[in-house]
Simulated assay, not measured.
Amino acid sequence: MKQLTSAENLDDFVSKDGFSLLFFSASWCGPCQQMKPVVEGVASMMSDRFNTIRLDVDQSPQAAAEYGIRSVPTLMLVKDDQIMAQQVGAVPPQQLMQWLNQRT
C-alpha cells in the first residue's frame, strides 16, 4: 500500500489501465486506525487486481476535496479516473474482500 504525501500528486499513482483502491483516512480517526491493517492485508492478498493508495485527508486536503470525501474512513475503487464504488466506515476483512470481489 502506497502512502501518499502532501507533495505527491495522486494522478501519478492511480492506475491508468486498471483499478486503484483509495483509502482516505486521518491520524485522529479511531475507525481509520482499525481499518489500516485490514486494508493492508486485503491489499496484499489482492495486489494483482488493483494498487492501493492511502491518503491522509489532513495531509492531502486537495485530493480529499477532489473526490468529495466527507467522512473517514472512506474506500473508493477507481478505474480510468471514474469512481466505480465507494465504501464509508470500518468493515471487517471478509466484508471488504467481498465488496472488492464483486467490483473487480
Score class of each variant (00 low, 15 high):
residue 48 D to W: 02
residue 68 G to H: 14
residue 90 A to R: 03
residue 82 Q to T: 14
residue 94 Q to D: 14
residue 94 Q to G: 05
residue 85 A to F: 10
residue 99 W to A: 13
residue 51 N to K: 07
residue 55 L to I: 15
residue 21 L to K: 03
residue 56 D to K: 00
residue 67 Y to G: 01
residue 32 C to S: 13
residue 84 M to D: 13
residue 58 D to V: 00
residue 102 Q to K: 10
residue 86 Q to G: 05
residue 18 G to R: 07
residue 57 V to Q: 02
residue 39 V to A: 03
residue 85 A to I: 13
residue 58 D to A: 04
residue 99 W to Y: 15
residue 12 D to I: 06
residue 76 M to P: 00
residue 33 Q to A: 06
residue 15 S to M: 09
residue 98 Q to E: 15
residue 18 G to A: 05
residue 66 E to S: 12
residue 86 Q to F: 09
residue 14 V to F: 03
residue 80 D to G: 06
residue 94 Q to P: 00
residue 56 D to H: 02
residue 21 L to S: 03
residue 91 V to G: 08
residue 16 K to T: 13
residue 2 K to T: 10
residue 34 Q to D: 10
residue 3 Q to N: 05
residue 90 A to M: 14
residue 28 W to C: 03
residue 92 P to D: 14
residue 72 V to G: 00
residue 36 K to Q: 10
residue 37 P to G: 07
residue 29 C to E: 09
residue 50 F to A: 01
residue 101 N to G: 14
residue 53 I to Y: 08
residue 81 D to L: 08
residue 1 M to K: 06
residue 24 F to N: 02
residue 92 P to L: 11
residue 17 D to I: 13
residue 49 R to Q: 12
residue 71 S to V: 15
residue 20 S to W: 05
residue 102 Q to D: 14
residue 26 A to Q: 02
residue 96 L to G: 07
residue 68 G to K: 15
residue 87 Q to A: 14
residue 80 D to E: 07
residue 47 S to C: 05
residue 1 M to N: 06
residue 35 M to V: 00
residue 33 Q to T: 07
residue 7 A to R: 11
residue 7 A to G: 02
residue 78 V to K: 11
residue 38 V to C: 08
residue 71 S to P: 08
residue 8 E to L: 07
residue 92 P to R: 12
residue 67 Y to A: 04
residue 4 L to N: 01
residue 36 K to V: 03
residue 102 Q to R: 12
residue 99 W to F: 15
residue 23 F to H: 09
residue 1 M to Y: 02
residue 14 V to H: 01
residue 76 M to R: 01
residue 91 V to P: 08
residue 42 V to E: 09
residue 89 G to S: 13
residue 2 K to R: 04
residue 39 V to R: 00
residue 81 D to M: 11
residue 3 Q to D: 08
residue 27 S to Q: 05
residue 104 T to N: 06
residue 68 G to L: 15
residue 52 T to R: 01
residue 2 K to V: 09
residue 37 P to W: 11
residue 24 F to E: 10
residue 41 G to E: 11
residue 15 S to Y: 09
residue 97 M to E: 13
residue 100 L to P: 02
residue 53 I to N: 00
residue 50 F to E: 05
residue 14 V to M: 09
residue 96 L to V: 09
residue 75 L to S: 09
residue 100 L to N: 12
residue 75 L to T: 02
residue 90 A to L: 15
residue 57 V to A: 00
residue 44 S to Q: 13
residue 96 L to R: 09
residue 68 G to S: 12
residue 6 S to P: 01
residue 3 Q to H: 03
residue 79 K to Q: 07
residue 39 V to L: 04
residue 59 Q to H: 05
residue 6 S to K: 09
residue 92 P to E: 15
residue 85 A to C: 13
residue 16 K to E: 07
residue 60 S to N: 11
residue 48 D to S: 13
residue 77 L to P: 12
residue 13 F to I: 04
residue 6 S to G: 08
residue 20 S to E: 10
residue 40 E to D: 07
residue 80 D to K: 09
residue 20 S to G: 06
residue 29 C to F: 08
residue 23 F to R: 00
residue 71 S to G: 12
residue 37 P to K: 00
residue 61 P to A: 10
residue 20 S to N: 06
residue 31 P to I: 02
residue 50 F to W: 03
residue 65 A to L: 11
residue 28 W to N: 07
residue 92 P to Y: 12
residue 64 A to R: 03
residue 9 N to Y: 14
residue 30 G to P: 11
residue 76 M to I: 15
residue 59 Q to T: 04
residue 48 D to F: 03
residue 19 F to W: 06
residue 32 C to D: 12
